[in-house]
Simulated scan of single mutants.
Amino acid sequence: MSVNQIQIHVENIKCGGCEKSIIKGLTSIEGLSHIVIDQEQQMVSVVADESLRETVVSKLRSMGYPEHGSVSGLEAGLTNAKSFVSCAIGRIS
C-alpha cells in the first residue's frame, strides 16, 4: 500500500457550494484524508492509496465534476447539469 497525495484536475467547480458537495461526497470513500479543493485551479487533492484514484475520479464524475478533458459533447452537458445540482445541494446543506 502506497499512500500519496493524489491530485485530479476536474471541471465545473464554480463556488463554495461545489466545494462542500465534493468534500461531502468524497468523505464517503474509506481511506481518503486531507481533501483539499482549489477552486481557481479546478484541482481536487486527497491523501490516499494510489489504488483509490479511479474510485475518486468515478465519484467526482458521478457528481458532475469529471476529470479535465474526459468528457465531451452531450456527456459534458450532462455532467455540467449534475454539477449545478451538486452545487445547489452544497449551498443548502
Score class of each variant (00 low, 15 high):
M1T: 14
V3K: 10
N4H: 14
Q5R: 12
I6S: 14
Q7N: 11
H9W: 13
E11P: 11
I13T: 05
I13G: 10
I13V: 11
G16H: 07
G17D: 04
G17A: 06
C18K: 05
E19K: 14
K20W: 07
K20M: 08
S21D: 00
I22E: 09
L26M: 05
L26F: 02
S28Y: 03
E30Y: 15
L32N: 06
L32Q: 01
L32S: 02
L32F: 04
L32D: 06
L32K: 01
D38H: 09
D38E: 07
Q39D: 10
Q41Y: 04
M43E: 04
M43Y: 00
S45F: 02
V46Y: 05
V47K: 06
D49P: 08
L52M: 07
R53V: 05
R53C: 04
T55C: 10
V57S: 13
S58L: 08
K59Y: 05
K59L: 10
L60S: 04
L60E: 00
R61H: 12
R61W: 08
S62Y: 01
S62Q: 14
Y65N: 01
Y65A: 01
H68N: 15
S70M: 03
S72T: 10
G73F: 00
G73E: 01
L74Y: 04
A76I: 05
T79Y: 00
T79F: 01
N80I: 02
A81T: 12
F84G: 06
C87N: 09
S93D: 14
S93E: 10
